[in-house]
Computed example of a mutant assay.
Amino acid sequence: MPPTRTPMTRRKPMAHLAGPVALFLLAVAPTASRAQVAADTDAVLPLLVTRGHAPAAALLADDLSGTRYAHAETKAEVGREGTPEQRLEQKPEPLRRADHFRAGSITKTFIATVVLQLAAEHRLSLSDSVEDHLPGLVRGEGRSRGEGRSGGEGGSRGDDGRRITLRALLTHTSGLADFTAVTGGTTPVTPRQAVRLALALPPAVPGRFFYSNTNYVLLGLVIEQVTGNSYATEAERRIIAPLRLTGTSFPGARSSLPEPHGRAYSADGSDVTDLDPRVAGAAGELVTTLPDLNRFYGALLGGELLRPRQLREMLDTGAAHGAYGMGLYPVRLPCGTTVWGHNGRISGSYVRTAATVDGRHVLTYRVNTDAPEDPDVEPALLAAEFCPRTLR
């Protein structure tokens, strides 16, 4: 799974709660086989709370048989210590289907979709260099000559915009360092500040997969340069409005979440619900809901947003040696099924969407903390949802 940086903004403390897990399920018109899948998936969901150490978790699944929502949370043992107000504060809020939350790097799928739409309109080419659109911005020569890691034959650097294509940005093969290695994902920066921070770091090897948030910050600037509009405006016009994603937005500098929303907690239990989205920008700014993400990925993989050629390019993992396409990455499950999607991680929120390649079966789950602590829970959840029991 591509790694993402985790902002660790500190706010009001709230300890993660140990104790029983409550599981709630709402199903719409399941078939008999679907009911078995639901039972398997919902048996795994509480593990995100008990083994993943999240205060609460939720999932939304959509396929041809219907829609199913489930959530789980710790059950606080209230009544022994502290004032009534303090004891009430310890009880976690359930995650609701309509809640808004921060989607982190799932933003990258939206940005990649806009870039591929612009390519289909011949307003840019994926073979264009960064220099073609953002002249002078990405130049590694700013440091002393000879510093940094060699980027390939002839000693070419991995941070020279004249050699980096838009395709390399989309597939994380540019060789650019990740600016969040400096900020930790907690310091708001402008896109150009993010690029400068990345250029002060040793570059990776160009042509090799290296997940870097800097790549998508640059793509956001390219969108602005090509269209004259911000990446947020273009995504709203091209994706959010046509699909009627009423719970999805690019908040810019707004630190509060739209209503309704629950609370978000960092790994140490601090309340980080309010967060400046400029810590991530085009690499992770998005705010959305579970239904909107299922609708978006289903529409994208179903061919509603991209022409066939561009969708094939998005799913082509050759440049990243199988690790990543363009704003999407594949996971092959034990039963042989491959699902496509992305994860998103930002302080107080982890979300994962996975879908079959035709977009007809989509699952999104989220927890209200930085990430599940047990890395084995997510693969188990995906297998439970997408693999028939007899094939596991």
Rank of each mutant, 00 (worst) to 15 (best):
R244Q: 15
R244C: 02
R244L: 06
T246M: 06
T246V: 13
T248F: 11
T248K: 09
T248H: 07
S249C: 15
F250R: 06
P251N: 09
P251H: 14
A253P: 00
A253I: 06
A253N: 10
A253M: 01
R254D: 12
R254L: 04
R254A: 13
S255G: 06
S255H: 12
S256D: 15
S256Y: 10
L257Y: 09
L257F: 10
P258M: 10
P258E: 01
P260L: 13
P260G: 09
H261E: 12
R263W: 11
R263M: 13
A264K: 05
A267W: 11
A267I: 08
D268M: 02
G269R: 05
G269H: 03
S270W: 00
S270F: 00
V272G: 10
L275N: 02
P277R: 06
P277Y: 02
P277M: 02
P277A: 02
P277E: 01
R278K: 06
R278D: 01
V279D: 06
V279K: 02
V279F: 08
A280K: 08
A280D: 01
G281K: 01
G281V: 04
G281L: 14
A283M: 01
A283F: 03
A283G: 10
L286W: 04
V287C: 11
V287G: 04
T288P: 01
T288Y: 07
T288K: 11
T288M: 03
T289R: 04
P291D: 06
L293I: 14
R295C: 11
R295M: 04
F296V: 08
F296L: 05
Y297N: 08
A299I: 10
L300N: 07
L300T: 07
L300W: 09
L300S: 03
L301Y: 12
G302A: 03
G303M: 06
E304K: 15
L305I: 01
L306P: 09
L306K: 10
L306N: 10
R307S: 14
R307F: 04
R309I: 13
R309N: 11
Q310F: 03
L311G: 11
R312K: 13
R312F: 00
R312I: 07
E313C: 01
E313Y: 00
E313R: 09
E313P: 00
L315S: 05
D316S: 04
G318R: 15
A320C: 12
H321Y: 08
H321L: 06
A323G: 12
G325R: 12
M326P: 05
L328F: 09
Y329S: 07
Y329H: 13
Y329C: 00
V331N: 08
V331D: 10
V331P: 00
R332C: 07
P334R: 03
C335S: 14
C335I: 13
C335Q: 12
G336R: 05
G336P: 09
G336Y: 10
T337A: 15
T338R: 11
T338F: 12
V339T: 15
G341I: 06
G341L: 08
